[in-house]
């Protein structure tokens, strides 16, 4: 099975598709030596993200092992994660100072 997605950190709950993935077809990404597979819940364009698990509304979306945003609505496993359904959370700079 051909790899068509990449997970950038083991803590991530999304993968980045490196080829267009049609609804119902497999999303395949490496996890160490193994390949993991899930089904695309909808069409996902090349370079866009797919959810690895059901994401609840307001849930954290993680890539690079970091939070890249929160969901505006529930996103199912294999669903397309994009600027339409996630948002950036304002930073708390004062708390970051050391």
């Amino acid at each position: 099975m051909e790899v068509n997605a990449l997970r950038l950190d083991p803590a991530d709950n999304v993968v980045t598709c490196v080829a267009p993935v049609a609804k119902g077809s497999p999303i395949v990404y490496p996890d160490g030596e193994e390949l993991r597979v899930l089904e695309a819940w909808e069409d996902i364009p090349i370079w866009h993200k797919a959810a690895l698990e059901d994401l609840p509304e307001g849930g954290e979306v993680r890539k690079y092992g970091e939070r890249i945003g929160r969901t505006k609505e529930p996103i199912p496993r294999g669903g397309w994660v994009s600027d339409k359904n996630i948002y950036s959370v304002p930073r708390d700079y004062d708390q970051e100072m050391i």
Partner: peptide
């Protein structure tokens, strides 16, 4: 191009 938020 697949970048959804400023954070990402």
């Amino acid at each position: 191009g697949g970048l959804s938020t400023l954070d990402e």
